[in-house]
Simulated assay, not measured.
Amino acid sequence: MSSTLPTDYWKVSTMDGTVITPATYWANLWKTCVTDSTGVSNCKDFPCMLALDGYIQACGGLMIAAVSLGFFGSIFALFGMKCTKVGGADKAKAKIACLAGIVFILSGLCSMNGCSPYANKITTEFFDPLYVEQKSELGAALFIGWAGASLCIIGGVLYCFSESDNNKTPRMGYAYNGAISVLSSRTKYHGGEGD
């Protein structure tokens, strides 16, 4: 998710010419740009975030929440790993690890819900025959966001299940009763039979 947030191409549209593409229009959560055929980009930052459409504000907020939750999930996962000395006993580490998995799932859901309304707006405008402005297509950032969200959700679920399975099966303790030779065990057996 942290790579999705600053990526430029959330939506892309091109104006095709006869020989070359004269201009490519693209936008993300922070700015809108046009790139000409020579590769020179001219960008305009959004002047006021509160004046933007509601879906862009929601997408930006959800993506920032996803990155923040992913950061805290990574810290919880570090403390919940069995190979670290930090975090306490095994039961406490299992609880911290399960919490990390839940935070990863929430982070993935935030990212998924951040990318989806943006993509919905693009596809709605693209397939609307009454929409007369320039139509855009889905950019690479949306696919990166969906892939990252899916991996985060799957990883969080696997992390929760792996820690809960290890927590349910108690470790078997074996007591050492001392060394018993074969001869001494036979003597006890035969001695008990002769009485």
Rank of each mutant, 00 (worst) to 15 (best):
M1Q: 06
T4Q: 06
P6G: 10
T7D: 12
T7Q: 09
D8N: 05
Y9L: 05
Y9H: 13
V12S: 01
T14D: 15
D16A: 11
G17E: 15
G17R: 00
T18N: 06
I20S: 07
Y25L: 13
A27H: 02
A27D: 11
L29P: 04
K31F: 03
T32Q: 08
V34F: 14
D36C: 03
D36R: 03
S37W: 13
T38V: 11
V40I: 12
N42I: 04
C43A: 06
D45S: 02
D45R: 02
C48P: 00
C48V: 13
G54L: 09
G61V: 11
L62E: 12
L62S: 12
L62T: 07
M63G: 07
I64T: 15
I64C: 00
I64Q: 13
A65W: 06
V67A: 15
L69E: 11
L69P: 04
G70N: 14
F71V: 09
F72H: 04
F72G: 03
G73E: 05
I75L: 12
F76A: 11
A77H: 06
F79C: 07
G80P: 02
T84F: 03
K85Q: 14
V86E: 06
G87R: 03
A89L: 11
D90G: 01
K91Y: 00
K93R: 14
K95Y: 06
V103I: 14
L109T: 01
C110P: 08
S111A: 15
M112G: 11
G114K: 10
C115I: 15
S116L: 09
P117L: 05
Y118S: 06
T123D: 13
T124E: 13
F127K: 08
F127L: 08
P129A: 05
P129Y: 04
Y131V: 05
Y131T: 03
Y131Q: 07
V132A: 10
Q134T: 09
Q134C: 01
K135V: 02
L138Y: 11
G139P: 00
G139R: 00
A140L: 14
A141I: 04
A141M: 05
L142S: 15
F143T: 11
I144C: 02
I144M: 10
W146S: 03
G148W: 05
L151G: 13
C152L: 12
G156R: 09
V157L: 14
L158C: 08
N166R: 15
T169K: 07
T169I: 11
T169Y: 03
P170G: 05
G173S: 11
Y176H: 08
V182R: 08
S184R: 02
S184W: 00
S185Y: 01
R186Q: 08
Y189Q: 10
G191R: 01
E193W: 03
E193Y: 01
E193Q: 08
G194N: 12
D195A: 10
D195I: 09
